[in-house]
């Protein structure tokens, strides 16, 4: 809209630039906080406190044993009780391996079936061996392991 043979900016173009600039500032002032607001909860990491599983006496040598415990968890505005479970394996009664019972394929729960000597996932037939490594099926990697410690005969795990 500027007049020909003239590089000066006309009033109309000047107003366009000003309006676009102000609109951009307003848009950013709302848009950027809005992005932070929407993705905020996704960036929060879970707490890495020690979870008390129970007495190690319960674990038989060379047999994966399921431990279940209830933990308090703050999710959003709700303080909910959540069941936490994991398999514990020991070969010598002193060193303990704590494995997740969540299938590494798509997150279903696996179950130890003693007669078949394996962890079986009901969703897509994933099979894991006693130490959690993949035997067959679609799981991409062995069962996840938790950091663990034993204090006064009580087993604790840290959820990563």
């Amino acid at each position: 809209m500027s007049t020909p043979n003239n590089n000066q900016m006309g009033r109309r173009d000047f107003m366009k630039v000003i309006i676009a600039g102000i609109s951009g500032v307003i848009g950013a002032a709302i848009g950027l906080p809005a992005i932070a607001y929407v993705v905020g909860p996704a960036l929060q990491k879970g707490t890495d406190e020690w979870i008390r599983l129970g007495s190690v006496n319960k674990v038989e040598v060379n047999i994966p044993t399921l431990f279940k415990t209830v933990i308090q968890k703050q999710t959003g505005w709700i303080n909910a009780e959540e069941e936490f479970s994991a398999y514990v394996l020991t070969e010598n009664g002193q060193d303990f391996t704590v494995m997740s019972n969540i299938c590494t394929h798509l997150g279903c729960r696996v179950r130890w079936i003693a007669e078949k000597e394996g962890f079986f996932c009901p969703c897509h037939n994933g099979v894991f061996s006693k130490d959690g490594s993949v035997v067959s099926g679609p799981p991409p990697r062995s069962l996840d392991r938790f950091e663990s410690k034993v204090e006064d005969g009580v087993l604790f795990v840290k959820r990563g």
């Binding site: 906080p33 607001y37 929407v38 905020g40 505005w77």
Partner: peptide
């Protein structure tokens, strides 16, 4: 509305969550 819930047991808690826990929640 992404976070608010309209039930008596959680409405106020969800508002507090928006205002105190979320980034820029107080601003929105």
């Amino acid at each position: 509305t992404l976070y608010y819930v309209p039930t008596p047991d959680h409405a106020y808690d969800s508002v507090v969550y928006i205002s105190t826990q979320l980034p820029a929640g107080w601003f929105i």
